[in-house]
């Protein structure tokens, strides 16, 4: 994967993290989107990071519904070695 400005600038990384988490204020979000509009490599990276996060959320949901298959009922606090 190519290096982007996010690898060089911690402030931009913080912006990106908050953007993906949806915690940027309206003005900050607009500034960040303007920045992305002018930087193709970074825009592509953000698109992939967002899609990757969605995929991971999908996996987490799938795992939640599969939960319960795991049984550790044999584990109890009965002995200490």
């Amino acid at each position: 994967m190519d290096l982007t400005e996010f690898d060089r600038d911690e402030i931009l990384t913080n912006f990106l993290t908050d953007y993906i988490d949806g915690t940027l204020g309206r003005a900050e979000r607009r500034s960040f989107e303007e920045y992305l509009a002018n930087n193709v490599k970074e825009r592509k990276f953000v698109r992939k990071a967002i899609e990757g996060k969605k995929a991971l959320s999908q996996l987490a949901e799938g795992m939640k519904s599969a939960a319960g298959n795991t049984s550790l009922s044999s584990l109890t606090a009965t002995d200490e070695h």
Binding site: A49, E51, G52, L56
Partner: peptide, 15 residues
């Protein structure tokens, strides 16, 4: 934070 973002983007590339 940087690793999380890169990890997500890399995962998407793999997908």
């Amino acid at each position: 934070k940087s690793r999380i973002n890169r990890g997500r983007a890399h995962l998407q590339e793999l997908l």
